[in-house]
Amino acid sequence: MGSSSGQPEFDYLFKVLLIGDSGVGKSSLLLSFTSNTFDDLSPTIGVDFKVKYLTIGEKKLKLAIWDTAGQERFRTLTSSYYRGAQGIIMVYDVTRRDTFTNLSDIWAKEIDLYSTNQDCIKMLVGNKVDKESERAVTKKEGIDFAREYGCLFLECSAKTRVNVEQCFEELVLKILETPSLTAEGSSGGKKNIFKQNPAQTSSASSSYCCGS
């Protein structure tokens, strides 16, 4: 808990972003991962943030995870949070086909547009597999999409916690295998990773100054 002792509390710090349509379970997935609980959550307004510590092999990791509002109108607030992310998790709901088709129509394009990390690891996650009888997207379709877009892929359930930890662990393992990303995330360079100032780029701010 001590905030600024000399010994770094972790070896690597990675920034991870959760994106996807409204109601697919991004916040639930995050809550399931960080607190082992499942709850009916209110829609995310804007962005939310959580930290999770992981140990993988010998390495102590700190994940800074940004959770974003899924509704289209909020993309203007969330787009700046892609900057500097080493990992991006695209979530869809296996029982709602539109949340899957929007991945290629919308979310993959958002990543291309706003991600600043060439080597950023992408992960596709199909949530709500506990509702198997309502499934509208097959596992094969998920695998095919992931292959086409060069993503990792898992199906999970934030409710039953099936595969929840694996989603994040596999993403982190892949980040650790990518030298350009680990260089950024090593504790020596933590300042500039953690403290990406996401919103209000100069262009956004300046448009409000002109009137005064």
Binding site: I45, G46, V47, F49, L77, S80, K195, Q196, N197, P198, A199, Q200
Partner: peptide, 11 residues
């Protein structure tokens, strides 16, 4: 600390 209001005040 690079905190800006979009992180807490949008709502």
């Amino acid at each position: 600390e690079m905190i800006n209001p979009s992180m807490y005040a949008s709502q």
